[in-house]
Amino acid sequence: MRFTEEQRELRSAVRAVLARHPDATAWRPLTRQIGVAALAVPEEFGGAGGGALEVHVVMEELGRTLAPVPYLGSAVLATQALLASGDGGELLPALAEGTATGALAWAEDGSWDPAATRTKARRGADGTWRLTGTKDHVLDGADADVLLVAARTDAGVSLFQVAVDGAGLRREPLTAMDTSRPQARVLLDHAEARLIGTDGDGGRVLRHVHDLACTALAAEQVGAAERCLEVTVAYATERVQFGRPIGSFQAVKHRLADAYVLVESARSAALGAATAAAQGAPELSRYAAVAKSACSEAFSVVAGEMIQLHGGIGITWEHDAHRYFKRAHGSSQLLGSPAWHRARLAADLGLTDDGRGSGSAAA
């Protein structure tokens, strides 16, 4: 597919901001000057009325620089959860402006399956909801202004807002391998909460948000893998060994060619998922699972090749290779491992582990 002129201009604008602000200070110009947090928010809530393809463009660029900004956690996870719930009108404008950031506390015991939710929500005689449980891998959770929490009620999994300064809530920053993606643990001990959306509808909301988040993360992985390849190719043309640039050796050419194929194949998978999301395709879950699996593995391989082909400099702290390798490892497990996504894809298609249909015809 080809991006529109507006989408190409968006890419150029985001890249220019990230070139000037290669750290967390990029968030203010990205939101105030370009409006990245508002891209996928309807105009009625102060957004730009865009969709998944615009998010794809931004995420690719953020992946190229490993920018430590709260876009995935706030503009994708939290914002899309509010939109899917149909009950985020009072919270969305600030998130769209970027004056507030949001976090979605969801995963428990390393699982992103809504069915694994064990955090309890109980409603008292006075009508007040109170939550008890622990959430892990909460993106930008330690500093978020808006905290959304998935918890289980008698009606099923539901979505709640918990005041970040309320009693019974503790947020602990986590020391992750990839320090450019801040994560936190959220501990709730009878924390007062407000129901978002319909009681028991949280499972549907989270499954939809999960598909959109996997689609966005796949775009980030493509951008990061592409940057790894660019840097490695440039080094291979400059590094001289035995009187020749190492890129002129056939073995190195083959490895770079294989990396290129991986990047382009991953790009196709990510764009396929973004297009499905933009069109509201009913098969989005399948596209998202394919994209997350393929892009995770492609990024991991290309980041590894970046270290290998840089030789000694590739394993030093002075070079950026280790940062991309850590991001590749972390993003591969975030929102579910490649193996987990393949398993859910197989289940959705009605296939057994050996790839055959599970029905009687396959037997």
Rank of each mutant, 00 (worst) to 15 (best):
G124H: 12
A289G: 02
L10S: 03
A225C: 00
D348Y: 12
R123P: 10
M177P: 13
G88T: 13
A281R: 10
G35P: 00
E9G: 07
A19N: 06
L39F: 11
H137F: 14
G359D: 14
T79N: 04
A144C: 15
P93S: 13
G200F: 12
R255K: 15
S300D: 12
R32E: 13
L195H: 12
E283A: 13
A96L: 03
H341E: 01
A105V: 10
G51F: 09
A26F: 02
A176D: 06
G312F: 01
S296N: 06
T4H: 11
S293R: 06
T175N: 06
D201H: 11
A144S: 15
D348V: 02
T237N: 11
A277D: 10
T65W: 01
V164E: 03
T25L: 07
V209F: 08
A78L: 07
D165M: 05
A163K: 11
H322F: 01
A193K: 05
T25A: 05
A78R: 05
L217Q: 07
K120G: 09
P68R: 10
V164F: 01
Y235D: 04
D178L: 03
F45A: 14
T175H: 07
L92R: 09
G51V: 00
D354I: 15
R323W: 02
L66S: 09
S285Y: 06
G141N: 07
A288G: 06
G330K: 04
R181M: 12
Y71E: 04
A16V: 01
A298Q: 03
R2G: 12
R2W: 14
V55Q: 06
L77N: 02
L77E: 09
T132F: 02
G330L: 02
K135T: 03
G311Y: 14
E61H: 07
E305G: 15
A40S: 13
G350S: 10
T352Y: 10
E9H: 13
S12P: 00
L82D: 04
E226Q: 14
G47I: 07
G73F: 11
Q250K: 13
